[in-house]
Design a protein around this nucleic acid. Structure first.
Lengths: 143, 143
DNA sequence: CAAAGTGTAACTATAATAGTTACAAAAGGG
DNA sequence: CCCTTTTGTAACTATTATAGTTACACTTTG
């Protein structure tokens, strides 16, 4: 697969940890997200480093490091983005610097691209893991 | 390459057409953007279909279809996005529907992801090709 | 110390993207 | 009316970010 699913899967992990505390082995989460345990562990590592998740070896001791109301989706997004995925749009690699347009295009589009990036993060900052969990719980009840 | 550079290159094309009317063969633009003429022609086709560019065969007759002040970067973005690139984040393909979390996660994250998407387009709508061209022209003068 | 689970390296597989070649069709100039 | 230039597009290859997988040493808990 080539699509970047890290962000949605990371939300999945945190929501799972919120709903099933003490039952969060990478294997169980992987089953829920329909992916591979190693994929979960890799994301776990990033979420741990970002201070969102607490993980204990040897036991399925994964749990949220902070209350879900305090964890915004912006933080999750930031936690799992790589250098490549960190910009919404790649600027084309090397426009010809000898051409007046090529030599100035990158500077000319930086502001709008940065603004778009900023807008995404601002939008995501308004949502929390608690909000996601709430909707999931509502869905569970309606069965 | 795997990165999506269509959006930046599309802006490049339109800016080039605004600055060098009557001299816009796909070959010249490709040289400026440091890519292949066919890549330019493919994007040209999408920009033409979106009503942003007018193209004549046989002569380098590419020109803006509308005044650059009226062409927003949102329109450009919309013109060149594919089904795959149309969503900022792919939702992970098939979370396990038998798990309460897996069965409800997609519904729970749709709203924030849509909001992020909307935020990007709103941000891009504030910028125009004319604005980009202005900055390029400023850069040219400063040599 | 045994069982369960994590961390991580190393590799393969997938898929979206750009790059390239080739050529028929269109337009315009002489 | 033909010749040149250029576009439109198909068909293919190359690249690369990503996920998936296997394997195993290490850690924690009971």
């Amino acid at each position: 697969m080539s699509a970047n699913t890290r962000f949605p899967v990371a939300i999945h992990i945190l929501a799972f940890a919120a709903i099933y505390p003490g039952q969060c082995s990478s294997e169980r989460i992987a089953e829920s997200a329909n992916t591979n345990p190693v994929v979960i562990r890799r994301l776990n590592g990033q979420l741990k480093k970002a201070g969102l998740l607490r993980i204990r070896n040897g036991a399925a001791g994964t749990e949220l490091a902070r209350p879900p109301e305090e964890i915004t989706l912006k933080e999750v997004y930031s936690a799992v983005k790589t250098k490549e995925s960190s910009h919404l749009f790649s600027t084309h690699q090397r426009p010809n610097p000898d051409c007046p347009v090529g030599g100035n295009i990158l500077g000319a589009i930086r502001e709008p691209l940065d603004a778009a990036q900023e807008a995404v993060e601002l939008a995501l900052d308004k949502y929390t893991i608690a909000g996601v969990v709430e909707i999931i719980r509502k869905g569970i009840k309606e069965r």
